[in-house]
Write a protein that binds this DNA or RNA. Sequence first.
DNA 1: CATTGTGAACGGATTCACAGCC
DNA 2: GGCTGTGAATCCGTTCACAATG
Lengths: 224, 224
Amino acid sequence: MNKQDQNKPIPKATAKRIPLYFRYLRTLQESGVIRIKSKEFSQMIQVPSATIRRDFSHFGELGRSGYGYDVPYLIEVFSEILSTQVEKRIALVGVGNLGKALLKNNFRRNENLTIMCAFDSDPEVIGTCINCVEIKNIHDFSEVAKKEGITAVITTVPSKHAQQAIDTIVASGITAILNFAPDRVKVPEHVNIQYIDLTTELQTLIYFDEHVSQVNKLGLAKKA
Amino acid sequence: MNKQDQNKPIPKATAKRIPLYFRYLRTLQESGVIRIKSKEFSQMIQVPSATIRRDFSHFGELGRSGYGYDVPYLIEVFSEILSTQVEKRIALVGVGNLGKALLKNNFRRNENLTIMCAFDSDPEVIGTCINCVEIKNIHDFSEVAKKEGITAVITTVPSKHAQQAIDTIVASGITAILNFAPDRVKVPEHVNIQYIDLTTELQTLIYFDEHVSQVNKLGLAKKA
DNA sequence: CATTGTGAACGGATTCACAGCC
DNA sequence: GGCTGTGAATCCGTTCACAATG
């Protein structure tokens, strides 16, 4: 039905921008905006207009020449791409400071992502509830995850025990993992694992700030 | 002294891997490993050996043919690149669930990153302490940030107030910002802003899992 | 002899620039 | 006229493969 079903695979870089597109399109709709041009959208989300057009083109001819794009229609398309009709049921493994914070937030707005269940190995926290989610024993992961129909897992387990926790998760058949521990873990080829590491992000940011864009800082007034 | 000071700029992609390299080199050193070959290192950090050699080469001829790399020397070099001798003083703006969690963790080990001060606009939390850090009023940001010698700022302010908070931060002369709110904010050209958005990360991960690597899942047994 | 450092080939993503279309 | 969709050019990073080197 859509292009990505038929033939060409969506470029990775494009795929990464889809959630951004989707969120802003919804914001536009809430503001009553009914049509948008790639140039306008570009300013809003700070992605070059050519990139936006190229990205959109992968999903068919979504726009109209001399007019722009129809916002409700785009939302329909991207909603299907992200399959936002289907609730994505998430499990959280590791209920420390960060895990607790994620549980309390339990996802902004209605992106249809929900943390259904949480796990830890610490008897102190097992059995307690946070934001109406009961913390279960990691040993019961597989059973509970199956019952709850879990799609993806977030892990906030400290590096030392991350591999062990992730082995358990992988053994249960889960193939999508978002890992907040910085150390690389071994997973089978078919498992998708994504790392988020605050320390690394900060160090990289500071490195850029000190080295890469030093030039701009000295010659402050450019065309800004 | 080093190559990056003299002439060629370090590729962005390389720069992003530096913190990863550094962390693993330290792990090696702690285990008493004194030399490492690019192939071995590759297996450990899951980055191709050719990429590692290429990356390293940007900082000079760090290795020896037929031998490998000297771990202590590499650490010395990368330590200087990341200037880890100098303590990086961080400010946190927005002390909600996530902000609190970050304050409680206040950075793993001795990467020489420290959250020195935290800010919010909620009178309920202003004046309270978390992990020995007193929460200050955002109105005093500029003054405090200068006094504390802040290098970079982490913001966990909700989207609605993110722009305003970041304007305050930018006005104080800060040029490195790590923003957990997903909406794009306007900043002057010389300011480096990095976004971390959990929802986007998860959606992208699930999208890949469902679409991009579908093929692998069906033909499970490859050469693994 | 084993491994680095690197030219050269490759491939993916971005950007340009414009033909085609509304 | 104004904007999309897209060939073509370009940029950037990765990978290959091997000459140089201790």
